[in-house]
C-alpha cells in the first residue's frame, strides 16, 4: 500500500512538473501555437499561411490549435505568465476584450514590412487585421427569384415565416442588430430602433439560430429562405451544393476586422511576429483571395479579383464605399445589456 502510494505520488509529481515547466519537454524545438478559427479558416491557414511562414523562418515549427475567440481568451487568462498560445486570432469584440485585459503585445509596427500597406481600417497597432469577414444577405435562389437588395427586404410579407436570424451570442447577430438600428435612425450608441425593428420582424421569423453555423443547416432543411449571413460561410455551403447565394445589401455590407495578436509573455515573440507578417503579406493574402478560400484581403498591394471583386468590392478604395466598419468599443460597453434584453424580448 505504501509502495503504491509512493510511486503514485512520484508519477503525479512528474506529471505536475511537466505541466509547470513545459520548457523541460519543449526546449529542444522552439515552436509557436497559433489559435486560428475552426473549419474553413483552419484549412485556409494550414494550406497557405503555414507554408509561407515556414519558408520565412527556415522551417520553424508551428501548431494550429483552432478554437473560438472566447476560448483563446480563457486559456491565455488562465496562464498569463506562460501562455499556451503565441498568436491569437480575434473578431473585433473579443479583440478589444483581449487588449483591455492586457493579454496582447503591441505589434512592432516599425519593424513590419507590410503594415503600412494595409488599408487604414486594418492598421491596428495592437494587432493588424489579416482579413475581413463580410456579412450581408443570404437567400435561397430556388425559392427567391428576385435577389434581395436591402436589409429592409427581410420584412417583406412574402418572406413571412421564412426569415432566419441568430441571437446576439455571435459577432454576426450583434453586428446585424446594429445595422438594422442604423437603418432606422439609430447607431451603436442608440440601439433602441434596432430592437424595435426586431420586434416587428418577429412574425416573419422562422428561426433564431443559436449560432451562425446553424443557419447553414436551416437553409439546407428549407426551414429558412433568407437571413443575414457571412460571405465565407456561404461559399462553403455553395461548394457543398446547397442552394444559397450571397448579396451585399445597398446599406453597405458589415465588415469585421479579424485581427492577429502577439500574446503577451510569449516565449517566441520573433516567430509570432514572423507569422503575422506572413499573414498580412500580399503573397499570402493574394493566394487566400482565390477560390476555394475567397478570403477578403486587407493589404492594398493585393489586386482584388474573382468572386470577391464580383460580389463585394472591386478594389480597396471601393471597400470604403461598400463596407461599414462598426464601432465595437461602443458595442462591447453595452453588449451584455443587449444580450439580456434579447433574452427577454425575442421569443418567437
Amino acid at each position: 500500500m505504501n509502495l503504491t502510494r509512493r510511486s503514485l505520488m512520484t508519477s503525479a509529481l512528474t506529471l505536475g512538473a511537466m505541466q509547470l515547466f513545459p520548457g523541460m519537454s519543449e526546449a529542444q524545438a522552439k515552436r509557436i501555437v497559433f489559435a486560428t478559427f475552426t473549419g474553413s479558416w483552419e484549412e485556409a491557414h494550414r494550406d497557405v499561411l503555414v507554408p509561407a511562414y515556414r519558408k520565412a523562418t527556415n522551417g520553424a515549427e508551428i501548431v494550429l490549435d483552432p478554437m473560438l475567440s472566447v476560448d483563446q481568451i480563457a486559456k491565455v487568462t488562465a496562464a498569463r505568465s506562460n501562455p499556451p498560445i503565441d498568436v491569437m486570432l480575434h473578431d473585433p469584440g473579443p479583440a478589444l476584450v483581449a487588449i483591455a485585459n492586457d493579454l496582447t503585445e503591441p505589434y512592432p509596427v516599425d519593424k513590419s514590412a507590410y503594415y503600412k500597406d494595409l488599408i487604414a481600417e486594418a492598421q491596428e497597432p495592437n494587432g493588424p487585421a489579416g482579413f475581413f469577414q463580410v456579412v450581408g444577405l443570404t437567400y435561397n435562389p430556388d425559392k427567391i427569384k428576385t435577389p434581395p437588395s436591402s436589409w429592409q427586404d427581410l420584412w417583406k410579407p412574402e418572406y413571412k415565416g421564412k426569415v432566419g436570424i441568430t441571437n446576439l451570442n455571435s459577432t454576426l447577430g450583434t453586428g446585424f442588430l446594429v445595422e438594422i438600428a442604423r437603418m432606422n435612425g439609430g447607431s451603436e450608441a442608440n440601439i433602441e430602433p434596432g430592437f424595435k425593428a426586431l420586434e416587428s420582424l418577429k412574425p416573419s421569423l422562422s428561426a433564431v439560430a443559436a449560432n451562425p453555423g446553424q443557419l447553414a443547416t436551416l437553409f439546407q432543411q428549407g426551414q429558412i429562405d433568407i437571413s443575414p449571413g457571412n460571405f465565407n460561410a456561404i461559399q462553403i455551403m455553395k461548394a457543398r451544393g446547397v442552394a444559397v447565394e450571397f448579396v451585399a445589401p445597398k446599406e453597405k455590407a458589415i465588415a469585421f476586422k479579424t485581427t492577429f495578436h502577439i500574446v503577451k509573455n510569449t516565449q517566441a515573440k520573433d516567430l509570432a511576429f514572423a507569422l503575422i507578417e506572413a499573414a498580412i503579406s500580399p503573397e499570402v493574402q493574394g493566394k487566400l483571395m482565390e477560390a476555394p478560400y475567397l478570403v477578403v484581403p486587407t493589404n492594398t498591394k493585393v489586386k482584388i479579383s474573382g468572386e470577391v471583386a464580383k460580389t463585394l468590392a472591386k478594389d480597396h478604395a471601393d471597400m470604403k464605399n461598400k463596407f461599414v466598419f462598426q464601432d465595437w468599443k461602443k458595442i462591447n460597453e453595452q453588449r451584455s445589456a443587449w444580450i439580456e434584453r434579447f433574452n427577454r424580448e425575442i421569443k418567437v
Binding site: 447577430g173 443559436a210 446553424q214 421569443k347
Partner: peptide, 24 residues
Amino acid sequence: TLVGGGQMLFMPMYLYQQASTLNN
C-alpha cells in the same frame, strides 16, 4: 440548443452565454 434554437433560453444556454460570450 439545436432543436430549441437561439431564442429558447434554458439554464445551460444561459450559463454558456454568460461564461463564453460575455466573459462574466
